[in-house]
Simulated scan of single mutants.
Amino acid sequence: MAFPNKYTHRKVAETSSKSCEICFKLSTSVLITPDNKDFFYVCPSHLKDTGFCTPVIDQVALEAKKKKELEEEVERVKKEYEEKQRKKKEKEKKEASKSDDKGKEKVSKTDEDTKAEEKGATEAVKDTKSPELEEEPRVFELKRMFYQQRLDRKRQAEIAKRNRERLRDPSFFPSVPKGLP
Rank of each mutant, 00 (worst) to 15 (best):
E63Q: 15
Y81N: 10
V139P: 00
E83F: 14
S108H: 01
F40A: 03
H46Y: 09
C43P: 08
C20A: 08
C43Q: 04
K94Q: 09
L151A: 03
A13C: 09
Q85P: 01
K25P: 02
C23P: 03
D101N: 03
L151N: 02
H46E: 02
K79Y: 10
E80G: 13
V56P: 00
Q149Y: 09
E105D: 02
L62E: 13
L62Q: 13
D38Y: 14
L142G: 02
G103A: 00
D49R: 09
K115A: 05
D35M: 07
E75H: 14
L31K: 05
T33M: 02
A61I: 04
L142V: 03
Y81I: 11
T33E: 03
Q148V: 11
K119C: 01
E135M: 04
A61G: 12
E95V: 06
K25C: 10
M145R: 15
Q85I: 08
F40N: 07
Y147S: 05
G51Y: 10
V60M: 12
K67L: 13
R86W: 08
P137W: 04
R86N: 09
E135R: 05
L47P: 00
K88T: 07
A64C: 12
V74F: 12
T110K: 02
K109D: 03
V139G: 01
D152Q: 13
S130Q: 10
L31I: 03
K93N: 12
E75M: 14
S130F: 03
S108I: 02
K18E: 11
K115D: 11
E21D: 07
